[in-house]
Design a protein around this nucleic acid. Structure first.
Lengths: 236, 236
DNA sequence: CGGGTACTTGACAATGGTCAAGTGTGGTGG
DNA sequence: CCACCACACTTGACCATTGTCAAGTACCCG
């Protein structure tokens, strides 16, 4: 098989199914897929670092990307986990010139990079792209508001309970869920550390709220979890 | 004086000087100022609450608006303080239908309300508005990233030091600053409570980092504050 | 001058982080 | 197929930071 031709074809097929570009006419899609540069990253590889100059943004084709901040001492706070079809690193396209956070591949990932200039031109010519991008940024803003709320107004058990409920609402209606990330990574997302997460999980098991088998978690008392997630009840 | 005519005139003059609408041709400005509905709020009055249905967004003409979240127990986390010329409540225009947070006037304030439909039409017809709005949302996203970083990765003294340095960089190069909000409100912005803020201020005075006279703060040792703000040094 | 609000200070409690020492567990190579 | 190693996770003892509750002081507005 011819890798170049193949990746071109799948690129345009892929692009037109993303939330960002779904409304574009075929010809624009073609143009985009010629402009976009495909890059592959191995698990753990850095895509960009906070402060790096940004002359464009990325669209994730396959894999998963972690967007995060690091403290002076090296503690990590995950801001976002990017899934296939989502753009990332788009903030500096519209504001300044440097990335406000770090991006790292969580697994083998393929990205498509779009240079800033041609993307801004596209927006000028096609307002539906602008509206799509506005919707994406607004959604992200909302997610950040939720994250701020968690970090500032909720304690770790509440955050964990919220996350478990969130997963079970999304996945299925059977009350057994599969963590999509390692527990250490989950701690980073919830704004805590693995030790604390581990302790709270055991406490929840003691209280007969959940059962844990590796990454599988059975929600035994979903209502109990809900009252904890709102802060009505505590874990003590 | 004729209040209606007057407010119309100042409306369009005001609108064309905002970041959002600055690039619009005169005729569009006129149209907007006819569409926009002026509302006045007294100090402490609620503009909207989290969960309220949103069928448009606001532009602040005069005064100050606080955007905030409340916890179950009633603790407040300030997300943003809106200044004249800035839009607010714009997120649900592009995503869903309800406001993700509360908005309250911090002082006597005049706002201009734009219904969703006509604004989306405007974006479709004029891409420069879209780019302006994208710039505004991106900037806000960046601010939220900073807030998350503060809440998750920094302790309160670091947050306070960052804020003091931020004010002094903005205001003047003379190392004396004026708090733009009450200390209790500052505590809400920094993700803490008045008691803790008060204690840390006194500690900073003890360490000869600052001097405090009401809302005026003299930065005695700006370098010291900087090393604290990064986490290189602590306050102990 | 009076009253309410904002702010300060103290004693205490608790949440969650640190450090250290285990206990799995999965994947690779022999 | 098993052994081993690295790494993820767990658990315990301890401590720091910050929140709670209560009381007192200062300050501003009418």
């Amino acid at each position: 098989m011819n890798p170049k031709k193949d990746s071109n074809r799948t690129s345009s097929d892929f692009i037109k199914e993303t939330l960002l570009f779904k409304d574009l006419p075929e010809e624009q899609i073609e143009k985009l897929s010629n402009i976009g540069v495909i890059n592959s990253f191995k698990r753990g590889e850095t895509i960009f670092s906070e402060g790096d100059n940004a002359d464009g943004f990325y669209l994730l084709k396959t894999g998963r990307i972690k967007i995060f901040k690091l403290s002076f001492e090296g503690k990590e706070q995950t801001l976002h986990i990017i899934l296939p079809g989502e753009p990332f690193g788009e903030v500096p396209v519209f504001t300044g010139k440097t990335f406000p956070a770090h991006a790292e591949a969580m697994e083998e990932s393929d990205t498509i990079f779009f240079p800033r200039g041609s993307f801004v031109d596209l927006i000028r010519s096609d307002p539906s792209i602008a509206l799509n991008m506005l919707a994406i940024l607004s959604k992200r803003l909302k997610q950040f508001i939720g994250l701020v709320e968690n970090l500032s107004l909720k304690e770790v058990p509440q955050r964990l309970a919220s996350y478990l409920i969130f997963l079970s609402d999304n996945d299925n209606y059977n009350d057994s869920i599969e963590l999509d990330v390692a527990k250490g990574q989950l701690a980073n997302m919830l704004g805590t550390i693995p030790e604390t997460l581990s302790r709270i999980l055991s406490k929840m098991v003691d209280r007969n709220l959940i059962r844990v088998q590796g990454r599988t978690i059975h929600l035994v008392d979903k209502n109990g979890l809900k009252t904890i997630s709102t802060g009505e009840r505590t874990l003590n």
